[in-house]
Simulated assay, not measured.
Amino acid sequence: MFIYIAAPLTLLLFFLAKKLYSIKPSSLLNPVLVTIFSLILLLVIFQIPYADYQKGTSIITMLLEPAIVALAVPLYLQLKLIRAKLKMIVLSCLLSVFVAFSCAFWVMPLLGADSIISASFAGQSVTTPIAMEISANLNGIVSLTAAMVIFAGIIGGSIGLPFLRLCKVRNPQAVGVAIGCASHALGTAKILEENEESGAFSSIALILCAILSALIMPVLYHWLIE
């Protein structure tokens, strides 16, 4: 029975969370975060198998891909400006990939993480499907990677802009690239609400980071373990 109401319930909770956020904007009341915790609470209280929920929300999962493609609209509108700054965007994305790899495989081991945990965290700043493929290629835990990707997106969408303002980063292009490199689609969706130019630069950074991560990280990983 729950399979048939899982999708409508998820949408209802999300729209209620958005309404709550519009009344009281707060990083702790991020709509995605509130929806996730509400669903976890419901599944635990009523002892509903996650497999049932997953089947019931398969239609929402299917719509994720065209939703990501929709981010290309602001990118197209700002194409001339992006083309002029493309070299700097690519360099920024390359740096982001190397920083992510370094944190995963050089910093995290210093904190006690083993190679499997490190591999699971390496792709957390790129969009979920690609991050999961990267994790699988690096022998990581795919489910942990998926959870960390969502967490990174929520953090970026919640406190990314305030943090950048605190650091005196005000250029809309720089803000967009920073959010796109660190917080993928969730961060990009949030920044689009604030500034269309930032949203376009975030979209291209999201795409480039995903491509570069998929190409570079497995090569770096195999070089590291040899």
Rank of each mutant, 00 (worst) to 15 (best):
V90P: 00
A51L: 08
L64G: 10
V169T: 11
T128S: 12
P129I: 09
G176S: 07
Q173K: 11
L75F: 14
M62A: 14
V175I: 15
L79V: 12
M62R: 07
Y53I: 03
Q124P: 00
S118C: 15
M108P: 08
A119G: 08
L166A: 13
D52E: 15
G153S: 08
I89Y: 12
A131R: 10
L75P: 03
R165Y: 11
C103H: 00
S183M: 07
D52V: 12
P49Y: 03
N139Y: 06
L110S: 06
D114H: 06
V44Q: 09
F101P: 03
V107W: 10
D52L: 13
V142A: 10
F163K: 00
K168A: 13
L86N: 02
S125K: 04
V169F: 14
I155D: 01
I116L: 05
I60R: 05
I48V: 15
K55M: 03
L71H: 07
N137V: 00
F105E: 04
V97N: 04
L111H: 01
L166R: 11
G180S: 09
I117T: 14
N139L: 00
P74L: 04
V149S: 07
A152V: 08
S125V: 10
M132L: 11
V126M: 13
F46N: 09
K55C: 00
V169D: 06
P66K: 04
Q173D: 01
A136Q: 14
E65D: 13
A113L: 11
F98R: 01
A174R: 12
L79G: 01
V90S: 05
K168S: 14
L75R: 02
P74C: 02
Q124N: 14
Q78E: 14
Y53T: 06
K87C: 01
A178G: 12
W106E: 03
A104T: 09
Y76D: 02
Y53F: 13
H184I: 02
V107Y: 13
L164E: 04
L166M: 13
I59P: 01
S120A: 11
K55D: 10
N139W: 00
S183T: 04
A70K: 09
A122E: 05
T57R: 06
S96D: 04
S58N: 13
V44H: 07
A104K: 07
G56M: 05
F121K: 02
C93N: 12
I134W: 03
L77D: 12
G176D: 04
P109K: 01
Y53Q: 07
P162H: 09
